[in-house]
Design a protein around this nucleic acid. Structure first.
Lengths: 168, 168
DNA sequence: TATTGTTATACTCTATAACTATA
DNA sequence: TATAGTTATAGAGTATAACAATA
């Protein structure tokens, strides 16, 4: 867009485009690695990583969905794939019979452990190689501020759950 | 990942996660706007925006594909959609009979013009509202450096075009 | 009645390979 | 033979709505 850019300075526009492009390239590279190295989509990796991080290696479906953005059915779909591969297990929660507890299996942990080094390595080479320590600090501060701002004004699934159907 | 993060400092890890999250949230918000306001996917908007920017409002399919990452067939698919809506036209190039020149129509320009203000507005509110002028400068510099670095080492469709089939 | 999760289904997008036509 | 683009087709992912079970 070489237009007057109604509302954004040239510098802002440049930063915006750079952010989009960097994010896109990074995601492309990382996704490719996850797929080749572990036959995992990004979302699947996120699910596993969350579980590995969770206390006891288990979380409820809902807690997972809240973190991974997904629609519920989408998470069920992905969980089904991971389950089929023996990377997670699903079992009814003892506390709440409606809930399903998802747990990483040993196999799942192994896969994450196997994939993580290459993942981190790509990020370092792609993202941090050309940066000084000060650059990283600056990036961290500014992006952190943006993230907090974005989180504060929930742009996402603002609709809490979609009421059954009202105007429909 | 609460692990020692083999190879990334805590600050690097924070910057990485923040970048991924900010990029994801931003893209989500922008895509939503484009869809609601103009019934356009992000890729479709990119195609139109590139054309609007191009001299004479026209580009070859290949030039478009090079910019928008797509596989050739994917671009054909999207161009078909835009064509059906009267936002672009396609016609054989006079120079090279193999090529197809894609041109934005008046309708297409109008749509971009109609959608752009809201697009820019979202970006400003979401991305730049919490930033000082210095922040923007820093972001621009650092992200620009990363982008140049990423571009230098083509991680993308490194395979130039896929040879017919050799080992196959 | 509200919440948790699954299922059925339809739709969008993307990638691959085969194909046509021009250089 | 290489390049430009299309088409057919198959696959992954996502969203919606209807559903069953529990709170």
């Amino acid at each position: 867009m070489s237009e007057p850019a109604p509302g954004l300075s040239a510098e802002q526009l440049g930063a915006y485009f750079a952010l989009v492009e960097v994010g896109s390239l990074l995601q492309y590279a990382v996704d490719e690695h996850l797929r080749i190295d572990g036959d995992l989509s990004h979302v699947q990796f996120q699910v596993l990583a969350r579980l590995v991080d969770a206390p006891g290696g288990k979380l409820r479906m809902t807690d997972l969905a809240d973190g991974v953005v997904y629609s519920r059915s989408g998470l069920t779909y992905q969980a089904g794939l991971l389950d089929k591969r023996g990377l997670i297990t699903r079992s009814p929660s003892p506390d709440d019979e409606r809930s399903v507890m998802v747990a990483v299996t040993k196999l799942g942990r192994g896969l994450v452990a196997r994939v993580l080094p290459g993942h981190v390595d790509r990020v370092r080479r792609l993202l941090f190689e050309p940066l000084t320590g000060d650059d990283v600090t600056a990036l961290n501060v500014v992006l952190g501020r943006i993230r907090d701002h974005m989180r504060a004004a929930p742009p996402r699934s603002a609709k809490p759950r979609a009421r059954r159907n009202q105007t429909d």
